[in-house]
Design a binder for these strands. Structure first.
Lengths: 205, 205
DNA sequence: TTCTCATATGAACAGTGCGTTCATATTCTA
DNA sequence: TAGAATATGAACGCACTGTTCATATGAGAA
């Protein structure tokens, strides 16, 4: 907001180890980056702007993060709630509906829709973002889903020859398809029909 | 390749209407943009570089396209083959397998994987790309798929209460899910199982 | 045929952001 | 107390965007 008092050129300003230690600077930077990501989107998340908002030096950001994309990904994960455990009440259909509803709710009502879309989008060209997304989000979540399905399969609630990866792709892929490709996000009210289709199929009988 | 003879500064070079008319320049620009997109990816597709490769002026590109993203999208559509008609042999399952196999083949074996991923990625932040993608690709293709499914539904090959949009989301969304989110693209050999899951479901009986 | 208009062109400028280097000052650790 | 770690501001070079400008030339109209 106000002009920095040390902007005057020619006058010797004081560099030196910041008033704050590394951990504090990192926290401030991640907080500022998370704010920027939610408020103005991924495009606005530049080292320049984050540094200004966090009251840190741009040089410092270059030291701790390889690129603005990597910083954005870390800021997002730091802010997103921990991955929900998959419920196992014994009722597979109900558990899937619960889990997918939570996912859609998280996208639509908790502000994650734009960050998720932008981060997945950036991952298509930014290797830093791709790795962070893959390791910290996509793979772990897929693994949890598959585990829950495997349990159900052992209990005879799924066909023995069902391909669990494909089931995961159909359920979550349908949501991402609307979010990313069609850009008409999934409505939570559709979740039960989605699960029904995955379990019963679209063919008669 | 070779240095332009008119690079010498200070010496009056000759601007003026290019040696080529508008249609020719547009074609050259689209061709150069398509080459760049396939060869070096979306990141490399800047007005500056395309202008140089097409032997055109950067000013001209600004006149005809609002942004590099919009140019990339148009260049891609100009190069991609026309949308395949949905076959209707009366055998829904076989027709879906045919169509999805063509889609996967187009991604994996015809070099479309990277451009598609990068364009969908860019669409998450670039409104120009989002509009072009939505209007010229996603929506028309979805409509074609839904039409084929509606025919099948009328013939009793799908449940009367099946949600055709959801079926489309499950089939193509599964492919996009691997391409964009998991980044482990779909293999064509999985297509029959995917279609089987969509029609029969994963539950027993 | 002649004239007028559309338009491709090169040059220049400001703005933004990245990536890096440098000297300096401060805090933490041993 | 000495030295290592590190945050800081400044500066430079680079790439790309977005814009303006004068100029030359081809194409269509009168």
């Amino acid at each position: 907001m106000s002009e920095n008092a040390a902007v005057r050129p020619g006058r010797p300003v004081r560099p030196g180890r910041g008033r704050r230690p590394a951990t504090e600077v990192r926290a401030a930077v991640l907080a500022a980056a998370g704010d920027l990501l939610l408020r103005d989107g991924l495009q606005a998340l530049t080292f320049e702007r984050v540094a200004k908002e966090a009251g840190a030096s741009r040089t410092t950001l270059h030291k701790w993060w390889p690129s603005p994309g990597a910083l954005a990904a870390e800021a997002y994960f730091a802010r997103s709630r921990p991955v929900l455990d998959f419920p196992d009440t014994g009722d597979l259909r109900a558990d899937l509906v619960t889990q997918l509803r939570a996912f859609v709710h998280w996208l639509k009502d908790e502000g994650a829709e734009r960050p998720v879309a932008e981060l997945v989008g950036a991952a298509q060209t930014d290797p830093d973002v791709a790795r962070a997304w893959s390791e910290n989000y996509a793979r772990p979540r897929r693994e949890l889903a598959r585990e829950r399905l495997r349990t159900a399969q052992r209990q005879g609630l799924l066909r023995a020859d069902a391909d669990l990866d494909i089931v995961v792709d159909q359920l979550w892929g349908a949501c991402y398809h609307r979010l990313l490709v069609l850009r008409t996000p999934f409505d939570a009210s559709l979740v039960p029909r989605l699960v029904d289709h995955a379990l019963r199929g679209a063919a008669p009988r």
